[in-house]
Nucleic acid binder design. Structure first.
Lengths: 340, 340
DNA sequence: TTGTAAGCGTTATCAC
DNA sequence: GTGATAACGCTTACAA
């Protein structure tokens, strides 16, 4: 078992000083070619690798960034992480993933432990609990310490920082119009409580589209689902009590569950009822019939967010204006809706 | 913007030495209660947090562990990560997630960059390419450096280290028997090429079950799928050319895609054809009809693996015997198979 | 061309 | 009870 070797050892073995070794390894012009060769050969032979921790301490930068997300068992977040990872690696950074599990407390802990030197900056999507509480002191704190923060997807206006979002209201608006143009008139909405920023915006887009098309908004058709546990029940009671010809879910799960319910009630899709979901994931793709969805381009979102953070990390002048990037969405027409 | 404060600053402000501050913060009995109170109050007020990097350098341990997985956009891996994260956090460790994207080269790079001080140990599931190449020098190298490695799910006999696996052969064996007892006779298998260890074992279990039940193995019913791209085509041609009454997929995607094909050919499920998949994810749960699957308990696998690694990190005596933990699977009977 | 020394933030040893 | 000093592994003025 050959332990990791340090500059100190190289110096001792080669009978030169540590700084000579350091310079030689960095090809400093100060050092003679002879010494450089000797040192580098030795280093290579013993598979010398500089110690990242020591470098971090010296340089006051770790080349690590932290991503704090509410949940990882979620296709959209998983795509975002892939995007972040890809871009960060490309730019020489490692990614530390932290899960808040939708908990405010865990989000705070994650932020605090990471902020103590482990990373250079944060990428964060708010937990539900944090959004409900509207308590953002932990975010302000890291920002005040001079640590860059980029928020994505689930963001807050109350925090002044770089952001990457989906244009949820518009995406939703377009989707509902799409349904209307395909011949639907009574469109049910399966959404989240309003404290979830994206749910709120998608609800807004839904309402605006109806308004603009002169369709009256029927609050009975708007179902707010808090947790997956209550999803089935709420969907069933919607089918029991209301009449409608389309369902728009603010995520793919909601739409797919509604579609199953329709299926089991013998409805023909999309002729008798259409379905659209948000966030194109495997569920949508492999549902039967396959689900028309709003594609959110999570991978791109991750890339953009990572790029934004790293740009800020590597620009020296502290720019105090913040950027907000909006990722375009698109509708992927599949089998669950009628062609327009 | 109040920058992070260090012990040095506290010492200067309070007019004591740095070592006094250090001891006071650690409640050393050497220090007078007075000083302790003073220092701690000051530290609290300025929100002092010890710098992790400095601690890592000093203690030669980072309290970070790296997980290297082939893909994150995959429910099973995502569950494993959640389990790892939960357990690691509980035991005071952070998790750095690295994606190999099924590439040998990226796996090597991940290992190398992480091994240079950033982490205390590895959790790894092999990339497909690595399994195909059977080149494990990078793993041997980190092990030789004295860095603990725990492999999970996609493991190799050639590497001597702790492992956590599913008993794939047995799980598969049981599943096929389950199908047979439910009345199926000709069971098609959708599997991976043999270099994917889990695919190979599941194929083995399938064959053994048939043998033990006196059913002849028909190689035409065994379809090996390398990538998702070729999945659809291979499934279609299976349906075109063979007769069978059940499909067993070595993952949920394979099973669901086959089920869709059956659906679109008007087959009645499960009366005319049964379906079972491996790895219970959202696809299985929300498929129509819902898919009977082998539950792999990824979360537990993650927890076990993390626990194993951290146990090794924190035990002083270098135990040179390695543990292999097998996670039990179970069959979750849903709508896609007939009751036994 | 090479070496010395200080410093990054912390802890541990040893003196005072 | 308190403080100097060395050490972790590395870089970088500054000296020699």
């Amino acid at each position: 078992m050959k332990k990791k070797i340090t500059m100190k050892e190289i110096a001792r073995e080669l009978d030169v000083s540590i700084s000579t070794v350091s310079k030689a390894l960095n090809n400093s012009p100060e050092i003679s070619q002879d010494t450089i060769d000797k040192v580098q050969a030795f280093a290579k032979f013993y598979n010398y690798k500089p110690n990242n921790i020591a470098l971090s301490l010296k340089n006051k930068k770790t080349k690590n960034i932290a991503v704090i997300i509410p949940e990882i068992v979620h296709h959209f977040f998983t795509l975002i992480i892939s995007g972040i990872e890809q871009k960060a690696n490309e730019l020489g950074y490692n990614v530390i993933v932290c899960l808040s599990n939708e908990s405010f407390a865990k989000e705070v802990i994650n932020l605090e432990t990471m902020a103590s030197g482990s990373i250079d900056g944060f990428l964060l999507s708010l937990s539900k609990e944090t959004m409900a509480k509207k308590d953002f002191h932990h975010l302000r704190e890291v920002i005040n310490q001079g640590m860059p923060l980029v928020m994505f997807d689930r963001v807050s206006d109350e925090i002044y920082c770089d952001k990457v979002i989906i244009d949820d209201a518009r995406a939703s608006y377009n989707t509902v119009k799409h349904l209307i143009y395909s011949g639907c008139q009574r469109i049910a909405l399966l959404t989240t409580p309003d404290y979830v920023s994206v749910g709120k915006l998608r609800t807004l887009g839904y309402k605006n589209a109806l308004k603009d098309e002169g369709i009256e908004i029927d609050e009975n058709l708007i179902v707010r689902v808090e947790t997956v546990e209550e999803l089935d029940g709420k969907v069933k009671s919607l089918f029991d009590t209301e009449k409608f010809d389309a369902v728009f879910g603010v995520n793919e799960l909601y739409a797919v569950v509604a579609m199953r319910e329709a299926h089991s009630r013998g409805l023909i899709i999309p002729q008798e009822m259409s379905f659209v979901g948000f966030s194109d994931g495997i569920l949508s793709k492999y549902a039967y019939p396959s689900l028309t969805t709003v594609v959110q381009h999570g991978f791109e979102m991750g890339q953009k967010a990572a790029k934004m953070l790293i740009d800020r990390l590597e620009s020296d002048h502290t720019d105090d204006s913040y950027k907000m990037e909006v990722i375009k969405t698109s509708i992927l027409q599949r089998e669950s809706t009628k062609p327009v």
